[in-house]
Simulated assay, not measured.
Amino acid sequence: MTMLTESLDHYLELRHNLGYKLADAGRLLPRFVAWMEANEQPTVTIRHAITWVELQPAQPGSVVWPHRMTAVRGFARYLSGIDPATEVPPIGLFPSKRQWRPPFIFTADNITALMDQAHRTLDSRLPAATYSTLIGLLSVTGLRIGEAIRLDGADIDLTGGVVLIRESKFAKTRNVPLQPSTVAALRAYAAQRDKHLPTPITTSFFVTVGTAPSSVDSKG
């Protein structure tokens, strides 16, 4: 095993332990290291990085080259602490030409309109309450949609006013405090949910009613 191969194994393991999925790095860097070794190059330089990146044909505006260079740059940063001769490619060598669009920021009126729309267009029983309450929770807590729909009843402490988010992004677990008005809204929803589903078949906090009780997403 060469130094580069061993270093790559350590780098990928470190990044994985930090919670990164390494979709690009895990696929691209073994190819880069194999190319370096085939060309008997023990040290990563900017010239080597550019040469390898450009081996893959790419159309104008493609993200292929930027993605490849981003993977190499991260690895080079790690290597620079091992081999001082390592050159870290600067940002901007292969800029992406994709246009960046600013995110749409929902105003309070937008959120109210969404919640009202849920009540107007969905079943007047539980689905409308489920989605309007879910939208409200997202807006006041900043939870990701996946975090919210994965919540079990045991994750929401209506007495203490805290939501427990289990192993979300980067496998982190955290507590999210709730305002009294949010607790009141969740308590009202839970009461309505339990009225319609006195014997639920899922532990999910947010549920809807179809041909059989189910969670908001595929959970349950």
Score class of each variant (00 low, 15 high):
106 F>L: 14
80 S>Y: 10
83 D>Q: 15
75 F>L: 03
41 Q>D: 00
67 H>R: 12
94 F>Q: 11
90 P>T: 11
38 A>S: 10
31 R>D: 14
38 A>F: 00
91 I>C: 05
44 V>M: 01
78 Y>G: 09
107 T>I: 00
95 P>T: 11
52 W>I: 08
40 E>M: 07
68 R>Q: 13
55 L>R: 15
57 P>S: 08
82 I>P: 00
36 M>V: 04
82 I>V: 14
92 G>F: 04
91 I>S: 06
88 V>P: 11
92 G>N: 10
79 L>C: 06
48 H>T: 03
104 F>H: 09
76 A>V: 04
87 E>V: 05
78 Y>A: 07
85 A>E: 09
57 P>W: 11
73 R>H: 10
40 E>C: 03
76 A>R: 08
48 H>Y: 03
86 T>I: 04
86 T>V: 09
38 A>I: 01
79 L>H: 10
73 R>M: 13
44 V>P: 13
90 P>F: 03
104 F>S: 00
41 Q>F: 01
41 Q>L: 15
89 P>V: 11
74 G>C: 10
67 H>C: 09
95 P>I: 08
64 V>L: 08
37 E>M: 08
49 A>E: 10
96 S>M: 00
39 N>P: 05
78 Y>W: 15
85 A>T: 11
78 Y>E: 09
87 E>K: 04
50 I>K: 14
36 M>D: 08
89 P>M: 02
56 Q>L: 13
77 R>Y: 10
68 R>T: 07
66 P>G: 07
86 T>C: 04
44 V>F: 03
54 E>S: 13
89 P>D: 03
59 Q>N: 09
33 V>L: 01
106 F>I: 00
66 P>K: 03
104 F>V: 14
97 K>W: 05
59 Q>I: 03
88 V>R: 12
84 P>N: 04
91 I>W: 00
43 T>R: 01
82 I>L: 14
97 K>I: 01
75 F>M: 04
102 P>A: 12
38 A>L: 00
44 V>W: 04
79 L>Q: 08
54 E>M: 09
55 L>N: 12
74 G>M: 02
81 G>E: 13
90 P>G: 04
94 F>H: 06
101 R>W: 15
76 A>F: 07
71 A>Q: 06
91 I>F: 02
82 I>Y: 02
87 E>F: 05
51 T>W: 11
79 L>W: 05
31 R>K: 14
103 P>I: 05
32 F>R: 06
76 A>Y: 09
103 P>R: 00
82 I>S: 01
53 V>S: 07
85 A>D: 07
107 T>A: 04
56 Q>C: 13
97 K>Q: 15
92 G>H: 09
47 R>N: 08
46 I>A: 14
32 F>G: 00
74 G>P: 11
53 V>F: 06
34 A>I: 02
